[in-house]
């Protein structure tokens, strides 16, 4: 099933076909339970149970080494006075809402270019996809540190033009931008999905449009964008959620500190510091739930807003 049709199915008011299936073949139910068992056990033991535990810990002063005492809303009170939390939220928001749209734009742009039937498409596709596989890895974060250091590759490149570049990673005003760039560079995953989506758009639409004298730009705006909007929406939802959870890059580039002077203090990094450096595990649990809440709210807004711009073809 293609991504487009998959999303379409999901967006249908309610799974009529699903209900029918269950009614017809009841004995499949038991088999389904058996086949689902590994997943259900995993969900309960590894995800749901621990999540409930962490919800409970959010209301305690758990410090890993002593018993957890119930402290009511104290952790929430602490959040309100926590200036570093505010700072980390700001950093994360800037990171998410700058890097995700740019990343999607780059991915879409390249997908459109690649979709024009380039020779050796699969090669290009693989090459562009590569950073997505590497981008969140430790090795690339280490590389990034070298590229954007005072004596890094980037400044050596600039010096060819007589520009004396600063230490991009070690300066509070530019450190976050280098991480945003790193994130944008991992455009491969959404690009591949865009490519798949572009393939689903019937060629006749373009042929009809060009017969009517529509320019390339008009075709893009009036055919490609609306037809692709479910895919854009899908990538946007995934992209925002992924960006909110970014951790590795900032952790490696700043040595786990979020520096210089907290300019790359991602929310997840701050959470890690509270939990594993300060041993404020109760507070860290509360922070994890705050992140869940924030992501849920933005995703809900996203779904609500999609009514106004996502076009479904049936």
């Amino acid at each position: 099933m293609s991504v487009v049709s998959e999303i379409r199915t999901l967006r249908k008011p309610s799974g009529r076909s699903g209900r029918k299936g269950r009614g017809v073949k009841t004995h499949d139910g038991k088999a389904a339970v058996v086949f689902l068992a590994p997943w259900i056990i995993g969900l309960v033991a590894i995800t749901a149970g621990p999540m409930l535990m962490s919800l409970y810990l959010s209301f305690t002063d758990y410090n890993l080494l002593s018993n957890a005492n119930f402290t009511g809303l104290e952790n929430i009170q602490r959040m309100l006075d926590d200036t570093r939390l505010a700072k980390s939220l700001t950093v994360t928001m800037v990171y998410v809402f700058v890097s995700t749209p740019i990343q999607l734009a780059v991915a879409l742009g390249l997908a459109v270019v690649l979709d024009r039937g380039l020779r050796g498409l699969s090669l290009y596709r693989s090459i562009f996809y590569l950073p997505s596989l590497l981008g969140s890895s430790v090795a690339v974060a280490v590389l990034w540190k070298r590229v954007f250091g005072v004596d890094g590759l980037f400044n050596q490149f600039l010096s060819l033009f007589g520009i004396d570049g600063p230490g991009w990673i070690s300066q509070p005003s530019t450190a976050l931008s280098t991480l945003i760039l790193l994130h944008v560079w991992t455009f491969g995953a959404p690009m591949v999905i865009f490519l798949a989506g572009l393939r689903q758009i019937p060629r006749e639409f373009y042929e009809a449009a060009s017969v009517d004298g529509a320019s390339r730009r008009q075709q893009f705006r009036n055919i490609t964008l609306p037809m692709l909007s479910p895919i854009i929406f899908f990538n946007l939802v995934l992209g925002l959620i992924g960006a909110f959870q970014s951790f590795t890059q900032a952790f490696i580039v700043s040595d786990g500190r979020g520096g210089p002077s907290d300019s790359t203090l991602f929310f997840t990094l701050y959470l890690y510091q509270q939990g594993f450096v300060n041993f404020s595990m109760g507070y860290a649990s509360a922070l994890a739930w705050l992140l869940l809440l924030i992501i849920a709210v933005f995703t809900a807004i996203n779904f609500w807003a999609s009514k106004f711009w996502v076009f479904y073809d049936n």
């Binding site: 590894i46 995800t47 149970g49 621990p50 999540m51 409930l52 535990m53 962490s54 919800l55 810990l57 758990y62 890993l64 957890a68 995934l238 959620i241 992924g242 959870q245 997840t268 939990g275 595990m281 860290a284 649990s285 994890a288 739930w289 992140l291 869940l292 992501i295 849920a296 995703t299």
Partner: peptide, 17 residues
């Protein structure tokens, strides 16, 4: 994916508590 962080994190906490 959204729950991954909370889940993994909590998994550890529950074991330890």
């Amino acid at each position: 994916r959204r729950t991954l962080l909370g889940g993994a994190f909590a998994g550890f906490s529950a074991l330890s508590l």
